[in-house]
Simulated assay, not measured.
Amino acid sequence: MALVLTSVAISQPKVDKDEYYVVIKKSDFTLTVYNRNHVWVARYPVVFGSKDLGDKMIAGDRKTPEGTFHIVSKKVHSKWCRFLALDYPNAESYEKFNERKAHGVISPNASIGGGIGIHGTWPNEDFAVDNYQPWTEGCISTKNEYIIELYNLLPVGTKVIIEP
């Protein structure tokens, strides 16, 4: 008589998009996760694309946008470990962008950009986060071990607030 072993997949309970929210404080280089009761859950160091921590103005300026966004997709990334895509530009972003154009703050021919997300670092380059090196094109980057934790914790739809 043969012994047959079967494996049973143990699934994680589905987390509601409103279970957590994220606050990124550019001036503190932090990403903090809160639960729905506004209790601090985790905090991670992050870096951005420019030493100028001002709000994103136009495509290619390497600045990180400020405002309220949501995670719209998640994927394992060949370069940056994991990628949590944000819904930038959204209606709030377009409103600020168009207002800046109307007031001559930016060129009438400028474009708003896109492709902003939260991701890891290049393989073996977590030191960029330790050294607060700006290296992205405007995304938020953290250490690979941290982005894996965030990827596993935060569902699509999670609110992300980026503050100055």
Score class of each variant (00 low, 15 high):
A2L: 14
A2Y: 11
V4E: 12
V8C: 01
S11C: 08
D16P: 01
E19F: 03
Y20I: 04
Y20M: 02
Y21K: 08
V22P: 00
V23R: 09
I24D: 02
K25D: 14
S27W: 04
T32E: 06
V33Q: 00
Y34R: 08
R36W: 09
H38E: 15
W40T: 15
W40G: 12
W40N: 14
V41E: 12
V41H: 04
A42C: 07
A42T: 13
A42R: 15
Y44F: 14
P45Q: 13
V46S: 06
V46W: 06
V46N: 00
V46M: 08
V47Y: 00
F48H: 11
S50N: 15
K51Y: 14
K51W: 13
D52N: 15
L53F: 04
G54I: 09
G54W: 06
K56A: 05
K56R: 13
K56P: 13
M57P: 05
M57H: 06
I58C: 08
A59C: 06
A59Y: 14
G60H: 02
K63C: 01
K63I: 11
T64E: 02
E66W: 05
E66Y: 12
G67P: 07
G67H: 02
G67F: 05
T68K: 14
H70P: 09
V72L: 04
V72P: 01
V72Y: 11
K74V: 07
K74W: 05
K75Y: 10
K75C: 06
K75I: 09
K75N: 14
S78D: 13
W80N: 04
W80R: 01
W80Y: 15
L84C: 03
L84G: 08
L84N: 07
L84T: 04
L84W: 07
A85M: 08
L86T: 09
L86Y: 08
L86V: 12
Y88N: 10
E92D: 15
S93C: 13
E95T: 15
K96N: 07
N98Y: 12
R100P: 00
A102E: 12
H103V: 14
H103Q: 14
G104P: 05
G104E: 01
G104W: 08
I106V: 15
S107G: 08
S107E: 00
A110V: 05
A110P: 10
S111F: 02
S111M: 13
I112D: 09
I112Q: 11
G114D: 10
G114P: 08
G114A: 08
G115Q: 06
G117Q: 03
G120I: 06
G120M: 06
G120S: 04
P123N: 11
N124P: 08
N124S: 14
E125K: 14
E125W: 03
E125Y: 13
D126Y: 02
D126N: 11
A128F: 13
V129Y: 02
D130K: 00
E137S: 10
E137D: 10
G138A: 00
C139T: 03
C139S: 12
I140E: 04
K143H: 04
N144D: 00
Y146W: 09
Y146Q: 07
I148M: 05
Y151L: 00
L153Q: 12
L153C: 06
L153R: 11
V156S: 10
V156G: 07
G157Q: 05
T158V: 07
T158C: 06
K159M: 11
P164V: 05
